[in-house]
């Protein structure tokens, strides 16, 4: 069961620290969990894990493909590896390793791809991923998630540590605004209805959940009743929830920090189309562009992923 936070302006613990502290904690009681790093220990805070459990921390150097393969080999020996690198390297760069040595070989690898989409900030276009969800969705058996805040991210990491298979979570490394109250629990594959509404349905995930809630508040103030779903599990997508919540809506928007090709918007579109749902619908995300450099705030505006941009999309659909 989840509960929303009381103050959405407050930020939680930096997300990279959340991931690494949670992994270190899980390792206290589960000797099968191991952590692999590709020379980003200071950037990802995985040095927390190194300090707590040096015997199960594997520094692979700047060799991401090797890191994924080593993780696969550790899985063969019964371990449950977590790996981290920046989102594009955690998916695009090592796709064949994750696909074959990982998924196809029935191995377990938990992947934290950091700084997705506009959150890349000063690392810029070379370090930007707008396509990680599309890639990971196309990998048979993979579970794909986008964490909304620190509370949800900790829950996801703990859940991954119990499972077998390929699991992907994308999240900023820095602190983000709280969505959920501490102690909230979730269910993989089940979306969360955060606000009820009868006119508009916004389906979103990750850091943009906060912006979608901002937009919904403003739309409500203008008399547009808006429902927001946090679809933190993008694969498997919660079809039943989409089909039940779309009923009676005048417009549906999928709002994502990802390309409109292959991500959450595509997943929602597939559900709507295959169930003959005719409703004004828009995928609101990165419009098939490359990333670029700038502050995260500037990039969010540049790629039109702010609450104001979302409101414009909603109003456009309602016209």
């Amino acid at each position: 069961m989840f509960k929303l936070t009381e103050d959405r302006k407050v930020k939680g613990t930096p997300l990279a620290k959340v991931v690494m502290q949670t992994i270190a904690d899980v390792m206290d009681t589960d000797e099968k969990v191991v952590m692999l790093e590709a020379d980003l220990g200071s950037a990802s805070s995985s040095n927390i894990v190194e300090k707590a459990h040096p015997e199960r921390y594997v520094q692979c150097g700047i060799a991401e493909a090797d890191m994924v393969g080593i993780a696969a080999g550790l899985s063969v020996k019964g371990f449950k590896p977590f790996i981290h690198t920046f989102g594009p390297f955690a998916t695009r760069r090592v796709y064949d390793q994750l696909y074959l040595s990982g998924a196809y070989a029935h191995n377990t690898i938990n992947v934290y791809g950091s700084d997705p989409g506009f959150t890349v900030g000063p690392n810029g276009g070379t370090h930007t991923t707008w396509e990680d969800v599309a890639l990971m969705r196309a990998m048979p058996t993979a579970v794909v998630t986008d964490a909304a805040d620190a509370v949800q991210l900790e829950w996801i990491v703990r859940e991954f540590a119990k499972m077998e298979g390929i699991h992907y979570v994308r999240a900023n490394r820095k602190d983000v605004r709280n969505v959920y109250a501490p102690g909230s629990t979730f269910e993989l594959g089940k979306g969360n209805v955060l606000t009820e509404g009868k006119d508009v349905l916004i389906i979103t995930a990750g850091q943009l959940v906060s912006d979608a809630l901002d937009a919904a508040e403003q739309l409500e103030a203008e008399g547009i009743s808006t429902e927001v779903i946090d679809m933190f599990t993008i694969k498997p997508i919660d079809k039943e929830l989409i089909l039940s919540e779309v009923k009676g809506k005048k417009a549906v928007v999928a709002f994502e920090n990802h390309s409109i090709i292959g991500g959450l918007g595509s997943a929602v579109a597939e559900v709507l189309a295959e169930n003959c749902i005719a409703v004004p619908f828009k995928r609101h995300g990165c419009m098939d562009q490359f990333g670029q450099v700038g502050t995260p705030d500037w990039l969010q505006k540049e790629f039109k992923l702010t609450a104001a941009d979302l409101i414009e999309t909603v109003k456009g659909l309602l016209k």
Partner: peptide, 22 residues
């Protein structure tokens, strides 16, 4: 270990050998 995409077995062998040691 599943192999066929050349090169990948090398890293998997590293992980297996590490796992044996761990």
């Amino acid at each position: 270990m599943t192999t066929g995409s050349l090169g990948q077995g090398t890293s998997a062998a590293v992980g297996i050998a590490l796992g044996q040691k761990m």
